[in-house]
């Protein structure tokens, strides 16, 4: 899981210019991190690249509210064997 958190946080630092200290598990994507619907599209694109997955049409993305939700979603993809681009 540590590797998933590290890689996901890299997406938020690189794509959305976030500071590391903002990236806590309970931070809400919209309110705490300040992303909007357009950023969500780019978050999906960036996660696709980072973890080598295709998730744009995955309905579960719509349920993401917090950064922790992103970690757990990626973990789920790993467990499903959809992504192996993490050593976690």
């Amino acid at each position: 899981m540590d590797e998933i958190i590290k890689m996901t946080n890299e997406v938020f630092v690189d794509s959305f210019e976030m500071e590391e200290e903002q990236l806590t598990e309970d931070a809400t994507i919209f309110d705490d991190l300040g992303l909007d619907s357009l950023d969500m599209v780019d978050m999906v694109v960036a996660l696709q690249k980072k973890f080598n997955v295709k998730i744009r049409d995955d309905e579960r993305v719509r349920n993401i509210r917090t950064l922790g939700d992103v970690y757990r979603y990626i973990e789920l993809l790993r467990d499903e064997g959809v992504t192996s681009d993490t050593s976690a």
Binding site: D39, V41, Q48
Partner: peptide, 10 residues
């Protein structure tokens, strides 16, 4: 790859 899914919203 004739794939639109990698396009940024921007």
């Amino acid at each position: 790859e004739h794939d639109l899914a990698e396009l940024s919203s921007m």
